[in-house]
Computed example of a mutant assay.
Amino acid sequence: MDPEFIHVDPRTLLRVEQSGQPAVVYRCKLQGVPCGLHVEGTASAVSAHLRGHGIIGPDNISTTCMWGNCSKTLKRGSMTRHILTHLGVKVRCPVCGAVKSRYDTFRAHIKFSEPCHLASAEMVDGPEGRVLVPTAWFATN
């Protein structure tokens, strides 16, 4: 099978190449002038990507989500978390198997569930994610 070529946020590409570990990336669907990039489905990568689009300012100001056809009004500080729900990224508890749509709800789960108290989150990739592998992987396969 031939590899699919996609445009990836340069920060994500650098991290994947330096770490030697794959990452799951998602096409940016912000309305307006499309950037055509794929961004990693992590809070830090999505937040940096939003800043690159000029979505900045105090966390408590109201803003409108412009991802795909969404037009939900929310606080700027909630935008990254909201976009991750658009990507379909979820968190699974490895102890009981509970799947949460956001990391903050996973933290609440382990806080109030005694058997899961020491659990670490397992990321569940969204359905439109593409696996980005380091170029070194192609040399060995």
Rank of each mutant, 00 (worst) to 15 (best):
R81A: 09
H53R: 15
F106W: 05
G41I: 05
L30V: 06
T64V: 15
T63V: 14
G52D: 11
I55M: 13
R51Q: 14
R51P: 09
L37T: 02
T80A: 01
T73D: 09
T105P: 02
R81V: 05
G32M: 01
T85A: 08
L50R: 08
S62V: 10
N69C: 01
R107Y: 05
A43M: 12
N69S: 00
G57K: 12
L50V: 11
P94L: 12
S78N: 06
T64F: 10
G68P: 02
I56G: 10
S101I: 03
K75Y: 08
V46E: 01
P94I: 11
G77A: 04
R92T: 08
V99Q: 13
A48S: 14
G97I: 13
H82S: 07
A43T: 11
T85D: 06
I83S: 05
V89P: 04
V95M: 15
G54Y: 09
I61T: 15
T42H: 07
D104N: 06
R76C: 02
R81F: 06
A43F: 08
H82I: 00
K72T: 15
V91I: 15
R107E: 01
V95K: 10
S62G: 10
G77C: 06
V46S: 00
L87A: 05
N69I: 07
C96V: 12
N69Q: 10
S44D: 15
G52V: 09
C35N: 00
